[in-house]
Amino acid sequence: MTQKNIKIYIDEKACKKCGLCIAFCPKKVYGSEGGKPVIVNLSACTDCKLCELRCPDYAIIVGGENIE
């Protein structure tokens, strides 16, 4: 597997702590801190973006491009 420089941005203010991203990341990239997602296994991330697409509050951005 090629090593990609993936970044994940979580907008803490937007997050409503639903837990969907944590529960359904196929690679278990997130852990929970009082319901909020925290990145615990970034290297496992495959950039599938499912967490971003499933976040009901648009609080996650996955990828190199759009994150400042």
Binding site: A14, K16, K17, C18, G19, L20, L53, R54, C55, P56, D57, Y58
Partner: peptide
């Protein structure tokens, strides 16, 4: 989006936000 209107009124985990995003 009308960013000044966000966050939306939907409950945590409500699927409406997911569909709107899609």
């Amino acid at each position: 989006f009308r960013n000044d209107k966000l966050p939306h009124i939907w409950c945590p985990g409500c699927g409406h936000g997911i569909i709107t995003g899609a």
